[in-house]
Design a protein around this nucleic acid. Structure first.
Length: 776
DNA sequence: CAGTGAGCGAGCTTCCGCTTGACTT
C-alpha cells in the first residue's frame, strides 16, 4: 500500500488528525521549529549577505532522525505545519532536512482541525510560499542581530548578563514609563455631590432615591456654596427619559484575552493559564491555546447553537462571526473553544475545571443573543440653582448572553455602582431631601500593570506573539528589570460636607490609597537599562518599531523586497550606533546625588553598583575611603530621600550583649537579621521588630526562639559517615556532608537504620542541581 | 547563607517564536 507522511507541529494535533485519516497516512509532529541559529554566537555571516547558519537544535536531533527515516519509507510527504509565517518556515526547514525540493514539495493548510477541513486540505496541496519563508528569515535574523549586538553593549556599560531585545526592552519600557507617570502624578481633588431623597415605592412604603450631580465641583468652596443654596430649596423632577439599550457578548477567547480573564476572574499568572490550558488541550477538551484568531469554525458554531437551543431555547441564539482586530494577526488557528460544547464540565483538577468553565461560557456566550436593558434617566431640578441632579435606573428586560457570562473589567472602579430599578416617579413630582453629601475625591494616575494587562498592551502594540507573551513576562522578571509585588497603601484624609436636617456640617475621613496586589514595578536596574537604551537606541525602543518592521515583512511576502536587502538596510545604521555607543557612551549607573552628609560634609549619592542599588558617602578621590550601604528592597534610586539614605548607614548597629557576645542588628541579603557569636537570626516581619529600634530584650527573645527551632531540627546522626537526619522547611531530609537528599514520603526518619539511609542516598545519586549543571 | 563596592583578567552572559517534557528549591 502506498503510504503518505503528514507532518504537523503539535503531537496532540497529530493524534487528532490520525483519527480522521486512514491507515495510508502516517501523522508525525515536528514539535515546532526543527532548526535554528545556535545560541553560542550570532551565527549570521554578515559579510556574506547575512547568511544564517541554521543547525538542528539539540532537542530536535531525535525528532529529525525519526522524520528522516519515515520520509524514506513513504511515497509522499505532506507538509501540514501551521498556516502562518513561522509554520511556512518550519515546512521549508523540513524540506532542507529531508532533502525535498522546495519547488515541488506538497504543502497543505487548514485553520480548523475538523475532518472536512483536513480532507479538503489534503486534496488541495499547494507549493511552498517562499515570500512567507523569507519574511520569517528576516524576522529571525533581525531579532538575533538586535539581541546579540545590544546585550553585549549592556554588559560593557551597565552590568554583565543583562539582555535587550525588540520585544522585552519595549515591555520594560512600558512598565518604567507607567511607574514614572505615577510617581510624578499630582492628584487633583474635586467634590462629588450625592443627594438622597425619600420617595414612595410601589407598595407605598418609604424608600431612598439616590441622585448625583453629574459634574465634579473643583473646590470645597464651590461644594459648600451649592450645599448652602440647597438648604431649604425645593427639588422636583423635571424630566424622565427612558432609553432602551443593548449589550453584546465579547468575542471568543484568543491567547491574550484568555490570559486577561483568567487573571481577573481566577487570579492566575499568565504562565499558569498557559500551563493549565495546555493540559486541557492535550486531553482533547479545548482547541489550540496559542492563537490570535477569534473566528470559530462552522462546525463549532453549529454545535454551540445546538447547545444553546437545548439549554436556553431558540430566543437565546444569535450566530455571530467575529473578526480579529489586530492588524498583524496571523490567524493560523481557531479561537480557543471547547472541542465539544455538549461537555459543560471538563478537566482533571480544580484549576483545569475552572479554566475550562471560563472557556466554555465565553464561547457559548459569543453565539448568544444580546442583552436588552432599559435605562431610565431622571433629571431633578433645584429651585435655587440651575444645577440638576440625576438619578439612573437600569432594568434588564432580556438577559440574553448574560445568562452565562459577563466579561470582567480591568479598572475596578468603585464609583460605578450598578443601579437597579427605580421606584415609580412622575414629572413635576416634588422630592423630599433626606441628606446631601459632598465627598472629596482625587484624580487617579494610570493603573500599574498586572502581567495580564501588560500582555494586553503588548498585543495592542503588536509586540510579541501568543507563544511568547508568557515567556517574555518571565524573562523581564528573571533579568530583574521588573518585579511582581504587593505594596501597602498610605492613608489620605478627605473632606465630607453634609447637609442634613437643614444643617451644614463638615468632617474629615481617612481612606487608604495606592495599595497594590501583584502588580509590576520597575527595579532600579530596569530603570537604568531602559534609560540607557532609550538614549542610545531610540529606534529599537520606539513603540512603532515592530509595526514598521511588519510593514517591511509584508513587502518581502509580496516579493517586492529581498529579505537580505531589508535586513541590510536596518543593519548599517544600527551597527554604527552600536559601535559609537561602545566607544563613546559613559557607564550607566543611574547615579543620583542626594546632598551632603552632615557628619562628614561628604557627598551622598545613590547608584546601581556591582551588587545592586546602593548608597555611598564620599568618593574615591576624596580623602578617606567611601562608605557604602545597600538600599532596602522597598527603596528605589529614583525616589529615595537624603534622610532615608543616611539612615542606611546606621546599620549594623550594636544592640547589646548576650551570653558575653556582642549582638548586632543589620539588613543582609535575606532581609533584617541579628548576629551574635557568628550566628544569625532573621528579624521576621511577623515579629514586628526592625533592626533600627530592636532592643536587647527583643533580640534575646528571637535568639531563644531560634535555639528552640534548631534543637527541633536535629533528628539523629551517623557520625562516622558524616550523615545527619534533619527537619527542614520541606519536612525531614538527609544531609551528608554538603549534599541534601530527599526522604521517601512514607518513612519514619527516627527509625531509619544506617543501611536504609545509605540505600536512599545511593538510589538518588548526587544532588540533582549538580547533575544538571554537569550535563550543560 | 548575612563585613562585599580596588583592580586584573579569564570566561561567561544574550534574541524571538515554534513546540513539549523534565524538573522542583
Amino acid at each position: 500500500m502506498s503510504k503518505k507522511l503528514v507532518i504537523v507541529e503539535s503531537p496532540s494535533k497529530a493524534k487528532t488528525i490520525q483519527k480522521y485519516l486512514g491507515d495510508e497516512y502516517i501523522i508525525e509532529s515536528s514539535y515546532g521549529h526543527v532548526r535554528d541559529l545556535p545560541k553560542k554566537d550570532i551565527s549570521i555571516d554578515i559579510e556574506h549577505n547575512f547568511t544564517p547558519n541554521y543547525v538542528v537544535t539539540d532537542d530536535k536531533k531525535e525528532v529529525v532522525k525519526r522524520l528522516k527515516k519515515l520520509a524514506k519509507e513513504v511515497n509522499e510527504v505532506l507538509l501540514a505545519t501551521d498556516e502562518d509565517r513561522e509554520g511556512e518556515a518550519i515546512s521549508w526547514h523540513l524540506c532542507e532536512i529531508l532533502g525535498l525540493d522546495a519547488k515541488t514539495a506538497k504543502r497543505i493548510t487548514y485553520t480548523e482541525v475538523t475532518k472536512d477541513a483536513i480532507l479538503r486540505a489534503i486534496n488541495n496541496p499547494r507549493s511552498l510560499n517562499m515570500g512567507l519563508v523569507n519574511a520569517q528569515q528576516a524576522r529571525r535574523v533581525l531579532d538575533r542581530i538586535v539581541g546579540y549586538e545590544l546585550s553585549p553593549v549592556l554588559w560593557k556599560k551597565v552590568k554583565p548578563s543583562l539582555s535587550a531585545g525588540r520585544v522585552q526592552s519595549v515591555a520594560v519600557r512600558i512598565i518604567v514609563e507607567r511607574e514614572r507617570e505615577i510617581i510624578n502624578f499630582e492628584a487633583e481633588s474635586y467634590f462629588k455631590l450625592t443627594a438622597l431623597f425619600i420617595v414612595k415605592d410601589k407598595a407605598g412604603k418609604n424608600t431612598i432615591l439616590k441622585a448625583e450631580l453629574p459634574q465634579k465641583l473643583k473646590t470645597e468652596q464651590e461644594a459648600q456654596s451649592l450645599l448652602e443654596k440647597c438648604n431649604g430649596a425645593t427639588f422636583s423632577i423635571e424630566d424622565i427619559e427612558n432609553k432602551p439599550s443593548t449589550r453584546n457578548p465579547a468575542a471568543p477567547f484568543i491567547t491574550s484575552t484568555l490570559q486577561q480573564e483568567a487573571s481577573r476572574k481566577l487570579g492566575f499568572p499568565v504562565a499558569k493559564t498557559m500551563l493549565v490550558a495546555q493540559k486541557l488541550y492535550e486531553a482533547g477538551h479545548i482547541t489550540y491555546m496559542r492563537t490570535d484568531s477569534v473566528s470559530l469554525s462552522q462546525t463549532a458554531i453549529n454545535a454551540a447553537v445546538a447547545e444553546i437551543t437545548a439549554s436556553f431555547g431558540q430566543d437565546y441564539v444569535k450566530v455571530r462571526q467575529y473578526s480579529t482586530k489586530a492588524k498583524d494577526a496571523q490567524e493560523a488557528h481557531e479561537a480557543i473553544r471547547p472541542t465539544s460544547f455538549a461537555e459543560s464540565d471538563a478537566g482533571s483538577n480544580s484549576d483545569e475545571r475552572r479554566l475550562y468553565d471560563l472557556i466554555w461560557k465565553r464561547s457559548i456566550a459569543s453565539q448568544m443573543a444580546s442583552a436588552k436593558i432599559e435605562r431610565t434617566i431622571v433629571s431633578i431640578g433645584i429651585s435655587s440653582s440651575s444645577e440638576k441632579f440625576q438619578a439612573n435606573g437600569e432594568v434588564l428586560t432580556f438577559d440574553g448572553f448574560l445568562k452565562v457570562y459577563l466579561e470582567s473589567n480591568d479598572d475596578e472602579d468603585e464609583d460605578e455602582e450598578v443601579s437597579g430599578m427605580l421606584p415609580p416617579l412622575s414629572v413635576n413630582q416634588v422630592l423630599d431631601l433626606k441628606e446631601l453629601n459632598a465627598v472629596q475625591k482625587f484624580s487617579k494616575p494610570g493603573a500599574r500593570y498586572t502581567e495580564a494587562s501588560l500582555v494586553k498592551k503588548m498585543e495592542e502594540l503588536g509586540i510579541g506573539r501568543p507563544s511568547t507573551y508568557a515567556p517574555t513576562i518571565s524573562t523581564i522578571q528573571k533579568r530583574n528589570y521588573v518585579e511582581k509585588t504587593n505594596r501597602e497603601g498610605v492613608e489620605r484624609n478627605y473632606v465630607v460636607l453634609q447637609l442634613k436636617d437643614a444643617k451644614l456640617s463638615k468632617k474629615e475621613a481617612v481612606e487608604i490609597t495606592g495599595a497594590e496586589k501583584m502588580k509590576l514595578f520597575p527595579t532600579d536596574i530596569g530603570n537604568v537599562v531602559n534609560d540607557f537604551l532609550l538614549e542610545h537606541f531610540a529606534t529599537i525602543l520606539d513603540y512603532d518599531f515592530t509595526a514598521q518592521m511588519e510593514n517591511a515583512f509584508d513587502n518581502i511576502e509580496e516579493g517586492k523586497t529581498e529579505w537580505t536587502q531589508m535586513v541590510s538596510k536596518f543593519y548599517k545604521p544600527f551597527h554604527q550606533s552600536v559601535e559609537d555607543t561602545i566607544e563613546n557612551a559613559d557607564r550607566a549607573s543611574g547615579e543620583r546625588i542626594l546632598g551632603v552628609d552632615p557628619k562628614t560634609g561628604n557627598q551622598v549619592l545613590v547608584r546601581v553598583g556591582r551588587y545592586g542599588p546602593m548608597a555611598q558617602i564620599g568618593s574615591q578621590e576624596e580623602d578617606a575611603k567611601p562608605q557604602y550601604a545597600k538600599l532596602l528592597a522597598t527603596q528605589s534610586i529614583e525616589t529615595i530621600t537624603l534622610e532615608e539614605a543616611l539612615s542606611l548607614f546606621d546599620l549594623p548597629r550594636v544592640v547589646g550583649n548576650y551570653q558575653g557576645h556582642e549582638v548586632k542588628a543589620a539588613i543582609g541579603r535575606f532581609g533584617p537579621y541579628i548576629a551574635y557569636n557568628k550566628k544569625f537570626v532573621s528579624i521576621t516581619k511577623d515579629s514586628g521588630y526592625d533592626p533600627y529600634t530592636i532592643t536587647i530584650q527583643e533580640a534575646e527573645e528571637l535568639i531563644k526562639a531560634k535555639e528552640i527551632a534548631d534543637a527541633n531540627k536535629f533528628i539523629k546522626e551517623f557520625k562516622e559517615h558524616d550523615i545527619q537526619l534533619l527537619n527542614g522547611r520541606w519536612g525531614p531530609y538527609i544531609k551528608k556532608g554538603k549534599a541534601n537528599f530527599k526522604l521517601p514520603k512514607d518513612v519514619e526518619p527516627e527509625k531509619l537504620s544506617l543501611e536504609e539511609v545509605l540505600h536512599i542516598i545511593d538510589n538518588q545519586g548526587p544532588a540533582k542541581g549538580k547533575a544538571r549543571a554537569k550535563k550543560k
